[in-house]
Design a protein around this nucleic acid. Sequence first.
DNA 1: CCTGAGACTGACCGTATGGTCAAACATCAA
DNA 2: TTGATGTTTGACCATACGGTCAGTCTCAGG
Lengths: 210, 210
Amino acid sequence: MSDLKPRPRTRIQRQNRDAILEAALEVFSAQGFRGATLDQIAAAASLSKPNVLYYFASKEAIHLALLGGLMDSWLAPLRALDPAGEPLAEILGYVRRKVEMSRDFPRESRLFANEILQGAPRMLDAIEGELKTLVDEKAAVIRAWGAAGRIAAVDPYHLIFSIWALTQHYADFDVQVRAVLGPGHDPFAEAGQFIEELFTRLLAPDARAH
Amino acid sequence: MSDLKPRPRTRIQRQNRDAILEAALEVFSAQGFRGATLDQIAAAASLSKPNVLYYFASKEAIHLALLGGLMDSWLAPLRALDPAGEPLAEILGYVRRKVEMSRDFPRESRLFANEILQGAPRMLDAIEGELKTLVDEKAAVIRAWGAAGRIAAVDPYHLIFSIWALTQHYADFDVQVRAVLGPGHDPFAEAGQFIEELFTRLLAPDARAH
DNA sequence: CCTGAGACTGACCGTATGGTCAAACATCAA
DNA sequence: TTGATGTTTGACCATACGGTCAGTCTCAGG
């Protein structure tokens, strides 16, 4: 039952697979799937093109390997939202984790964005399955918090969407943000503060829903 | 001095140019620049490939024609924000216009998103010029409103970014939003309500900045 | 009905790109 | 040293794609 997914065995295999995935992340996230070429990936990984294809069956296989690893780490911050915790602190904690992910893994965010933009041809299953399930679960928790008056009663789905939108925007539209702000700014630090304040005011339990 | 930009003269030229741009918008927004092919565009426009190239010098020229027309219509909603108006109403009006744009022109939004994701290679000038200028101008207006206590004093740049992020998210990540919500929803209608409420609570002048 | 500018097309070209393969090379246990 | 296994590569292939061109067709104005 072990070794179902045959892991790379030798040291060289592990090294080269990692180098290829790292290079592919760089290239795919910047150029999109069709925009990226095997030559670019090979060059970025300091390998020859045939050698890249020795480790991965095809360009598509590399892309799938990246996307496969992505969904889990993407869901982790939401998964960590604790139904037993203090509502506002839990949601703000989620926000902070998402801001940190955008800051620390912008390439992954852009890879994801590229995929969804093209209609998620290789991720729809994961989105309709894993992701929807988790969101449904956490949305129920947030709704209960609202019903209990512990936070303002807002639509939990759109609350989650808005957290995604705001945090990922700073990774995906990085060039635009920096171009508009000009030099001398730390977009992610400012964004973190702004977004936390935004949700604090939105969710303050004394705010009455109409 | 007239006719600097030679407009299409004949009826056929106007028709076919429009058909090509419409088809190209469809294809570019769904596939990105490199993902799109002239054959796809030609097929979508019901023209032969050489005929498409009879109207536009190259694939790039079609793309540029689309992007060129885009920036103006993209800035219009912000441009309409009136410094002499009632602050909260002005900002909520801007929000509503952006939501409507996402709802009515999702392909344009995705075309824009694709471009920025790839580092805005063909739009950086417009972003650092036109767009930054306009944002600087309106940010000053909003900052003045905050300083005067007519709305909460929040960072105007990140306020604008957050409006962009929230509204465009529903166009750009449409498939994800619909997949998570499931059937029986009108994402844009719900988003409009949610986002307006969010900014209303954020900007309520009685909310004290710390 | 002519005619010429405008509109259109099939056939073609050069290059880029994903992928293959046979052979060479490296590594290491026996 | 040797053989076996794992690794690497240059040369090559088929296709897709952006773009060209010579020539044909269309149609509005005279």
